[in-house]
């Protein structure tokens, strides 16, 4: 299998789905002539033309809503946010329109749309450009939320998301666009939504990690292996619907769990996973579930402070030692 970057994998998914289905189009700021702020849409304007690769004015609410309207009458828009920080301007259309249209119309209007772009921290872009917003969107029934952590997952999941008939929030990570991995070339390669992946098998502790935290958790697991602690790393890949069964089954085996996330802890996805584990596997736990989250503060600019705000290998290792009482 070819070794390609996350951005190339996403590009392949878009290209293949646009070739496959005329009703798929890509719209967003700088997606066309500029080829994407992060070059995910490189070459797409040249192949598909301005009818299907559309540069928008800086109007997040407007073009998000335009996408939802187009989806109401059968198109399959892919709406790119330059970053999910800017999607905050569009939340009215995502939450009040896209998430609820099928329900409040009594099943008449499905919304097959993908909202995608980078989520979470980048490199020293400070408070307004570093937010991980998955818990916002995952809160709302009607939305699906996807967060890939490898190029192969990114391609397979994005293809599924585009083919799905529901609104999908597809969250990439800016720090991971250059990450390389083996990716199948098969145009029918898809990964179903709602299925977690065991990224590393282990017996002593379960580490649940998503997006940027998956490679960090895998490095922590390697380090811990040297000390004889065997970690199982589970990537839910889809936050909603959440494959809680795979997580709970792992916890029933290891009896200990650490949940790593880049986002703020309060009311976060980690809190939800922790609550689910407690409700479903309380008797199996040999230690309280432990969260390792981003700082409960806005993202600072200073490099040293930024590094402190994002969970790293050492913090995950420390948390694993806590739940295994090996600290």
């Amino acid at each position: 299998m070819p070794l390609i970057t996350m951005r190339e994998a996403l590009n392949q998914a878009l290209r293949e789905e646009m070739r496959r289905d005329e009703s798929v189009f890509l719209m967003g700021e700088e997606v066309g002539a500029y080829e994407g702020a992060y070059k995910v849409s490189r070459g797409l304007l040249a192949e598909f033309g301005p009818k299907r690769v559309i540069d928008t004015p800086i109007s997040e609410l407007g073009f998000a809503g335009l996408g939802v309207g187009a989806a109401m009458v059968g198109l399959r828009p892919v709406i790119e946010f330059m970053t999910f920080n800017f999607s905050i301007l569009a939340t009215d259309q995502i939450i009040n329109s896209a998430a609820k249209m099928l329900y409040m119309s009594g099943g008449q209007f499905k919304i097959p749309i993908v909202f995608r772009g980078p989520n979470g921290s980048a490199y020293q872009v400070s408070s307004q450009h570093s937010q991980a917003l998955e818990s916002w969107y995952a809160h709302f029934p009607g939305l699906k939320v996807v967060m890939p952590s490898t190029p192969a997952d990114a391609k397979g999941l994005l293809k599924s998301a585009i083919r799905d008939d529901d609104p999908v929030i597809f969250m990439e990570q800016e720090r991971m666009y250059g990450m390389k991995g083996e990716v199948p070339e098969d145009e029918d390669f898809i990964i179903p939504l709602g299925v977690a992946d065991i990224k590393r098998e282990g017996t002593d502790v379960t580490i649940v990690a998503r997006s940027l935290m998956v490679p960090v958790a895998l490095r922590a697991a390697e380090e811990l292996e040297k000390e004889g602690i065997s970690c199982e790393v589970i990537d839910p890949r889809t936050i909603r619907p959440l494959d809680i069964e795979t997580i709970v089954n792992s916890v029933k085996k290891t009896n200990r769990v650490v949940i790593a996330e880049e986002s703020h802890p309060f009311c976060g996805v980690g809190a939800e996973i922790s609550a689910e584990i407690i409700e479903r596997a309380f008797d199996y736990l040999d230690a309280p579930p432990r969260r390792v989250s981003g700082a409960d503060a806005p993202m600072p600019y200073a490099k040293n402070l930024e590094a402190l705000a994002i969970p790293d290998v050492q913090r995950i290792v420390a948390a694993v030692r806590e739940v295994t009482y090996t600290a």
């Binding site: 809503g65 335009l66 939802v68 309207g69 187009a70 109401m72 009458v73 828009p77 259309q93």
Partner: peptide, 10 residues
């Protein structure tokens, strides 16, 4: 209003 714009776009 954005929804209508999208319907017309489609």
């Amino acid at each position: 209003i954005p929804l209508a714009t999208g319907i017309a776009f489609a």
